[in-house]
Simulated scan of single mutants.
Amino acid sequence: MADNDAKTDQQWREQLTPEQYHVLREKGTERAFTGAYWNTKTPGVYHCAGCGQELFESDVKFDSGCGWPSFYQALDAKRIDEHRDVSHGMIRTEVTCSRCGGHLGHVFNDGPAPTGLRYCINSVSVQLEKKKNEEAGETSGS
C-alpha cells in the first residue's frame, strides 16, 4: 500500500520537476517518443523518480513501438499497484509505485512472452541507474 501521505503536496512540488509532478502526482502523461528512456538500451535498473524504489530491470525492456518505455515484467509485483482507470473514455489498468503512490503509466495484455504484459511507463516517472561495468568499475554507456 502506498505511503503517499508521508509528503505534503508542497514537498512533492519542491522535490520533482514540473513534468515529473504532473505525471507522478496528477496522473499526467508525457508525449509519446519524447521521454528520455523510450528507446534507450542502457543496462541497469529503473527506479521510481518519486521515492527511489526499484521497479524494472533493463533486461525486461522491449521496443513495443508505442513511444514510451515498455517492460514485460516488474522487478517485484509487490512494488507495483494496479488500479482500474476509466478516464479518457476507455478502460485501462493504471500502475503506480507501491511505496509513494506515484503514477507510472498503464499495463496492457499485449506484451511478449513469457508474461504477455506490456508495462507502458512514462520516462519522467522513473530514473535509470546504469549498471556498473564489473571489470573496470565504470558505468556503461548508452
Rank of each mutant, 00 (worst) to 15 (best):
A2E: 10
N4I: 11
D5R: 15
D5Y: 15
D5P: 12
A6T: 15
A6I: 15
K7C: 10
T8D: 14
D9F: 13
D9Q: 10
D9A: 09
Q11H: 08
W12R: 09
R13F: 06
L16T: 03
L16F: 01
L16N: 06
L16A: 06
P18D: 06
Q20Y: 02
Y21P: 11
V23S: 04
L24F: 05
R25L: 06
K27A: 15
G28H: 08
G28N: 06
G28D: 07
T29Q: 13
T29N: 10
T29R: 11
E30H: 03
A32W: 09
A32D: 13
A32G: 13
F33M: 14
T34D: 12
T34F: 09
G35W: 04
G35S: 08
A36R: 14
Y37K: 05
P43C: 05
V45C: 12
Y46I: 04
Y46S: 15
C48R: 05
C48E: 02
C48L: 10
A49V: 06
A49P: 10
G50H: 03
G50M: 05
G52V: 07
Q53H: 11
E54V: 02
F56E: 00
S58C: 02
S58V: 01
S58T: 02
D59C: 06
D59V: 03
D63K: 10
D63A: 14
S64I: 05
S64K: 08
S64A: 14
G65F: 11
C66A: 12
S70M: 09
S70F: 04
F71I: 07
F71R: 04
F71T: 01
A74C: 01
L75N: 05
D76G: 11
D76H: 10
K78G: 15
R79H: 13
I80G: 13
I80T: 07
I80M: 08
D81C: 12
H88D: 09
G89N: 12
M90I: 11
M90K: 08
I91L: 15
I91E: 15
I91G: 11
I91F: 11
R92P: 02
R92K: 13
T93L: 10
T93S: 13
T93K: 07
E94G: 06
S98N: 12
S98F: 02
R99N: 15
C100L: 13
C100Q: 10
C100F: 14
C100P: 03
G101F: 10
G101Y: 01
G102P: 07
H103R: 02
G105I: 03
V107T: 05
F108R: 13
F108H: 15
N109A: 14
N109M: 14
P112H: 06
P112W: 07
P112K: 01
P114L: 00
P114V: 04
T115W: 00
T115Q: 02
G116D: 04
G116N: 07
L117N: 09
Y119W: 04
I121W: 11
I121V: 08
I121T: 00
I121R: 04
I121C: 03
N122H: 04
S123N: 03
S123R: 02
V124Y: 00
S125P: 01
S125N: 02
V126N: 00
Q127S: 08
Q127Y: 00
Q127F: 00
L128G: 05
E129M: 03
E129I: 03
K131H: 08
N133H: 11
E135I: 10
E138V: 07
T139R: 14
G141C: 01
G141Y: 00
